[in-house]
């Protein structure tokens, strides 16, 4: 069974969200990383872009597959994990820490109510 930290929120598209004040750190879950296999490219929208909840914010590509990334909360991209350009394997090896993908300044806190908690997420995988 994939590890699902209970301090995070989850989307049905297999992104995780960590909320600190009004900043959401976003990545993909271990379940998603394992299904994709070895990740080689992560391409995301540019800094300061405004996104609505569940808009596509990038693509993640493994040796065998490619998948769209959807932002779990509305807001502005304030940081992109640049380490991933040279080290995409961080997402496979440590998806909840070193493998975070973007940080978003949340524009609508109500979005959080539509996300899943860890036990709800566990049920859909």
């Amino acid at each position: 069974m994939s590890e699902i930290p209970n301090n995070l929120k989850y989307s049905k598209d297999h992104e995780w969200v960590n909320i600190e004040d009004n900043i959401a750190t976003i990545g993909i879950t271990l379940h998603a990383a394992e299904s994709l296999g070895d990740i080689v490219y992560i391409d995301v929208s540019s800094l300061n872009q405004e996104l609505k909840q569940f808009d596509k914010f990038g693509e993640i590509e493994s040796v065998k597959a490619v998948s769209d990334l959807f932002v779990p909360v509305s807001g502005k991209i304030v940081e992109v994990n640049e380490e991933l350009e040279g080290n995409p394997e961080y997402v496979n090896d440590d998806c909840y820490e070193k493998g975070w993908i973007i940080k978003v300044e949340i524009s609508n806190l109500d979005d959080l109510t539509t996300l899943l908690n860890s036990s709800e997420y566990e049920k859909i995988i």
Binding site: G37, D38, V40, V63, K64, E89, N92
Partner: peptide, 10 residues
Amino acid sequence: PINYPLGIIK
């Protein structure tokens, strides 16, 4: 088996 836990690249 498409891969083991090591993964395709390793």
